[in-house]
Design a protein around this nucleic acid. Structure first.
Lengths: 223, 223
DNA sequence: ATTATATATGACTATTTAGTCATATTCTGA
DNA sequence: TCAGAATATGACTAAATAGTCATATATAAT
């Protein structure tokens, strides 16, 4: 199974489109991969830690190890750096969920949810890299007007879960007496909550939590 | 049934404790209720809309209809205004959930969850006042270090739901094969999500959603 | 009416910070 | 080796903004 590294977000093709859209510059694109990667990671970490307003360009430059003059040769403005970071992260999530979809077992909801959960939590593909990435993903939507125009980092998970639920209804594994979108949202939210708890210091026992998740979702809470 | 108004948060006793803690001033305390209320509402609305960093004191003063000089006779600093607002809102939520608890039907989980959901959504006690209050509650925790030291506006709902679930386990209505705290968290989260969806432009059909919520929680998603 | 006390005001200051620019350094190709 | 192009740098500027203060106005007491 191919490991989807966060570094793959810096795919040349994506950078090119970002240059075309004026989000970053040719100068940045020509930088060697390591430097680009360092800047991207610093942005994820620092925006995640301090938020947009809380992070000054001076501090960013210091932590990323570049000068302020260079910064403005790489990005037109601070908000462009945020947009850059969000779009790359968004693209990384796309790749990740494509991979999850590709390696998923058949159409059975139970197995697909277990697979999804294991990919996210037990194999830790999403959050292993750095806890700050999780913070970034959850904080980002609250920090800038840019993000309110349709970029929603949770949608990758939600869309995938909705698809699972929809298919599950079709094959009769899931009850069909309500909107599958709403069900999908709720299920996605529960998975997201468990993943979050696992990664934000709670350290739940993985396997036990997984069993509980499935049982909770399928059988409900009644005695 | 007594209506819990958001204005009741400005209870004299609470203001006194806030003065003692240096969060607001004697001068503010002596203001007439209407002016205090106007300032509190403006803070909720504007912090909710712009966040802490995004709101300048000048803008706040303009919208609240006070002068900048007065502002600093009411609050030692901008962060004190935020703390003031959060603590009052937190206190309002306490009162609200005490009231919900007081008027709850017996120990049966089904009825208590229906009651809770109706109080929150159908009777709309929490969010009717202004949509911005919801925004404030959900945004607040992401905006200031103050809030990271133990103030969590979601905990009122979560604690109440956990208590319902725990009691439900004791009387054998709820399965007891997992941590009731975790179950409580998940159930609280689902309720919160549905309430959020209802109030943030989705306008779900109340009664149908309520039935679905209960059925989803008790019976699970299986066909 | 007069004095004293409390409240209101907005111009002002000091600081932070996004963004600029002139200069220095490094790289590339012949 | 050298010229020319690309990249790096940090002091500087302009704007925003948290917080101050001297003065004005309102209120209360005698």
């Amino acid at each position: 199974m191919t490991e989807i590294s966060i570094g793959r977000a810096l795919d040349e093709n994506i950078i090119v489109t970002l240059v075309q859209r004026g989000i970053t510059t040719e100068t940045f694109r020509r930088l060697d991969h390591d430097k680009k990667y360092r800047i991207y990671r610093a942005a994820l970490r620092l925006f995640g830690k301090y938020g947009y307003d809380g992070l000054s360009i001076d501090q960013f430059c210091h932590d990323a190890g570049i000068s302020k003059g260079s910064f403005f040769q790489y990005f037109p403005s601070k908000s462009h750096l945020l947009e850059f970071t969000i779009l790359l992260f968004d693209n990384y999530l796309s790749t990740l969920f494509e991979e999850i979809k590709r390696t998923a077992p058949g159409p059975m909801v139970r197995q697909r949810l277990i697979h999804l959960y294991e990919e996210l939590v037990i194999n830790s593909r999403l959050y292993r890299i750095e806890e700050q990435f999780y913070l970034f993903a959850t904080r980002a939507i609250y920090h800038s007007a840019i993000l309110l125009e349709g970029i929603d980092l949770e949608r990758h998970l939600t869309n995938y879960v909705i698809e699972i639920i929809k298919r599950g209804e079709e094959i009769g594994e899931i009850r069909g007496d309500f909107d599958y979108e709403l069900t999908g949202h709720l299920v996605a939210m529960i998975i997201s909550a468990l993943v979050g708890k696992t990664y934000l210091g709670k350290k739940l026992p993985h396997r036990q939590t997984r069993e509980y998740l499935i049982s909770f979702l399928f059988d409900g809470i009644k005695a």
